[in-house]
């Protein structure tokens, strides 16, 4: 088990390294290939009509005139070991993990990421609970009553669910349930949990449900397909033949096997979502990581975009790792196989 975990950890580190390469390529390499010179790139990192002196300073800070390998090395080592920025009178230490420094607001990106994480976390966790419960139970029920009216209605709704853009369902729910019937607060009103748990939940109901609707639809489809596959397997027949009650067969044997792939996908989805449910947060104007990135794009604050992107990637890698380990714990065969 230890060896397995160690191996997965090593794989996770490799994955992280690849992710840094891709992020680096997008933020530093591709623009250069597209014909932007180092001055132009520096200007993009400052935003808002920079002076030549500011460009020179940023160029030096980001090593934009160095060879590409040096730039990459500095980029990665900055993340891992921290960076230093000149405030004019002092050296600002951006401690590891240093997710960059916004030249536009003269602030480190990391604390700002942390500040927005609770919002995105609240959104993701609440929605995940809803969609897992709803999606999986609907999927299981549909599979068990295949062909029934319930199955058909559920699957049709699910298909509609995956076909609806979240920013549309969000707007419709705001129009109906916040504006026309003012049951829920309008977009942009987030209350911190510690401040008032009731207001926190009240304000998040619409985003939760909107987001969960899409994922519940996806998970219901997946669960149903998975259940149909496993319920036809030999070991289920064996279990039935042994005379086990149908309930035990379904929950203990069928569901367990059908859920394993769902867990993998859930890990990925949840990890991605912790990096910001960009569309949901934009639609409901929730001050989370995704909205932070969108605002930064609009305000030409590139270091922030870079920071959020890296942050998200890290979450995905961690989520992957957790899932891998959970997996091995649930299913001993995996340890041997991998």
């Amino acid at each position: 088990m230890i060896r397995y975990i160690f191996r997965r950890l090593a794989a996770g580190v490799v994955l992280l390294l690849v992710v840094t390469m891709v992020v680096f390529a997008i933020f530093f390499l591709v623009p250069r290939l597209a014909g932007i010179d180092s001055d132009g790139l520096a200007a993009r990192y400052i935003g808002k009509s920079p002076s030549p002196e500011a460009i020179a300073a940023v160029k030096e800070r980001l090593n934009l005139d160095e060879p590409i390998t040096v730039q990459y090395w500095e980029f990665v080592s900055g993340l891992v070991m921290g960076q230093e920025y000149d405030s004019g009178t002092d050296i600002i230490h951006c401690d590891a993990p240093c997710f960059g420094y916004s030249f536009k607001t003269n602030t480190e990106v990391w604390p700002q990421l942390l500040e927005r994480l609770p919002v995105t976390g609240s959104l993701a966790i609440g929605a995940a609970v809803i969609w897992l419960v709803a999606g999986v139970s609907i999927g299981v029920l549909s599979a068990l009553r295949r062909g029934s009216l319930l199955d058909r209605a559920a699957m049709m709704t699910a298909l509609a669910g995956v076909s609806l853009p979240i920013f549309f369902t969000g707007l419709v729910s705001l129009a109906l349930l916040s504006y026309y019937w003012p049951i829920f607060p309008p977009g942009g009103s987030y209350t911190d949990f510690t401040e008032n748990p009731l207001a926190w939940a009240h304000g998040l109901v619409l985003p939760w449900v909107t987001l969960a609707f899409l994922y519940a639809a996806m998970y219901a489809r997946l669960t149903r397909a998975g259940m149909l596959d496993t319920m036809g397997e030999d070991f289920i027949r064996t279990a039935r033949a042994k005379g086990l009650p149908e309930r035990t067969v379904v929950t203990k044997h069928g569901l367990r096997a059908a859920l394993t792939p769902i867990i993998t996908i859930f890990g990925l989805d949840f990890g991605l979502m912790l990096g910001g449910a960009v569309l949901t947060e934009s639609t409901f104007s929730l001050p989370g990581l995704g909205k932070f990135a969108v605002d930064a794009i609009r305000g030409s604050d590139l270091p922030v975009v870079l920071g959020v992107t890296m942050f998200t990637a890290v979450f995905v890698v961690i989520a992957n790792l957790v899932v891998d380990v959970l997996y091995a714990w649930v299913d001993p065969r995996v340890r041997v196989g991998a």
């Binding site: 200007a43 993009r44 400052i46 935003g47 009509s49 030409s300």
Partner: peptide, 8 residues
Amino acid sequence: PAGTYTSE
């Protein structure tokens, strides 16, 4: 983008 409109 407004960020580079007057500089570039």
